[in-house]
Structure formats: C-alpha cells, structure tokens
Simulated scan of single mutants.
Amino acid sequence: MLILLPPSEGKASGGDGPPLDLGALSLPEVTSARQAVLDALDALCSGPDEAARTVLGLSPGQQDAVERDRALRDAPTLPAAGLYTGVLYDHLRLPALLDGATAAAAASSVLIFSGLWGVVGPTDPLPPYRLSMGVRLPPLGPLGAFWRGHLTDLLSKRADGELVVDCRSATYAAAFKPAGAVAERTVSVRVVRETTDGATVRRTVVSHMAKATRGAMAHTLLATGASPTTPAELAEALKDLGHPAELTPPTARNRPYTLTVVERS
C-alpha cells in the first residue's frame, strides 16, 4: 500500500541535522530535477524581494520565507516527519508511527509530494522551505507539470502491484496522475460531513475537517498494520476501523476510484 500525501504550508521552524544532501533523499532518480528546482528558487530569491514574493504568492509580511529559501543549502535539516505540521500531520502523527513496530511500514508506505523536492519519504532530512506545487517558477514553468514529467514513469513503477491511497489536494495531484493498471488500484479520498435534520440528510465538504480525517485515517491504517490490496478491501477495512467509507467506481478510463469517508454529526 502506498499513501500519497500533500505537504503542509506550515512547517517546523528549524532542525539540528546536517545541511541538505540531495543524494540522501528518497527516489535519487530525480536528484538532478531537484537540483534544477533548487537552483531556480535560489536565483529567484537572490533577486528583488518583491519579485520573489510575487512568484511565491507571499505577502510583504512573509518576507522571512524568502530569506529562509535563500539559505536552504546551508540550513540545518530535520526529518520530513517532523518538518510538516498542520491539521493533516497533527492527526497523522508520523513521528509516533516511525517509532517502534510500525516504523518500517510508515517509512515505505508514505510518499509526501513537494513543489521543491518532487516526492520525499518521512525520514528524509530537509530544511524548512516555502515553495508550493502551484507556483510557476522561472525558468521551469508550472511546477506541477515539471514534476509530472519527472515522476510519472518512476512512480508508476513504484506503485506496480500496490494499492494507492491518494490523499493529495488537486494542486499536488498535478504532479502524478495514475493511469492504466495503477489507476485501477488507486482510490482518491474524499471526506464529507453528513448532518440530519428530520428526514433531510445533507452532505457538505469542509476542507479543515477533511485534512483531519485524512490524517487520522492514514494513521489508523498504518498503526493497525492494515494491508488491503484492492479498493474494495480498503473500504471494508476502514469501516471496520471506525471510518465509514463508500466506494464509487471510476467514471472514465484512467480515473481512480473515489473513496468517500463520511463524518456524521
């Protein structure tokens, strides 16, 4: 089973690990692509501050993010599991999963997408940074398309024979779109809140709750050692683990299943 995650906008402020070593990251096949993005980001942040903030989608009050990106090569690092914060990661509790019996499963099953690094694993040592997959980074262009060109074949091979649980947002899903046999084993996780008022049942999508639910769901799968191999087995496993889920078949060729996790209140 592979669990695909977005990063978080919020990140830990620092670490005490050695400076960045691109060769130490997971999926070394994309080291040259990571170097290209790092070089482009460094060039952007070495120029006028206002231009850098505009490209990165930052306000004047976020100038510290530009300054942090300028110092990436020499900044101390920390494991990705501790770097990414926010609602999804608060509920995923990756550091706890990497301690003890679940460590191997968590390290091998979780892939975190990143505008700067493409894809990383939970134990990869990274410095704090700011670069969304939605950025159009000169001279590379839209990062989603850039990374899709470098990751599609690699991740398709990595996912061969695996159930893929896709918890990414649309911005990060642009970097890898499962197709063919991989799409047939992929579920895109959707979360809805269900409320009942008399005989009327309403379902709404709430992004904050969705992040929490995706994190909690992924934690439960890894912590319990669940090993579903098909979308149907995943839906049944989640029901048994307290996450009511409904499976919808693909609507077209090269599209994933949709797994709707229902939070009732």
Rank of each mutant, 00 (worst) to 15 (best):
S13P: 04
L22M: 09
S26L: 03
L27C: 11
E29M: 04
V30C: 01
Q35I: 08
L38A: 05
D39A: 10
A40T: 05
L44K: 04
G47F: 08
P48G: 14
D49S: 11
E50S: 12
G61P: 07
Q62P: 04
D64R: 11
A65D: 13
V66H: 01
A71Q: 04
D74R: 14
A75N: 06
P76T: 14
A81Y: 06
L83H: 00
P95L: 06
G100Y: 04
G100T: 05
A106G: 02
A107I: 01
V110H: 02
L116I: 03
W117N: 01
L126R: 02
P127R: 01
R130C: 00
R130Q: 10
S132K: 04
L137D: 07
P139H: 13
G141V: 09
L143I: 08
W147C: 02
W147T: 01
R148P: 00
G149I: 06
L163R: 09
L163N: 09
D166S: 04
S169W: 03
A170L: 10
Y172H: 02
Y172S: 00
K177H: 05
P178F: 04
A179S: 10
A183S: 14
R185T: 02
V187I: 08
S188C: 07
V192E: 09
R202Y: 11
V206N: 09
A212N: 03
A216P: 00
H219G: 11
T220R: 15
L221R: 00
S227M: 14
A235K: 05
A235T: 03
L238Y: 07
D240C: 11
D240M: 06
G242T: 13
L247Y: 13
R253K: 15
Y257C: 12
T258I: 12
L259T: 03
T260N: 13
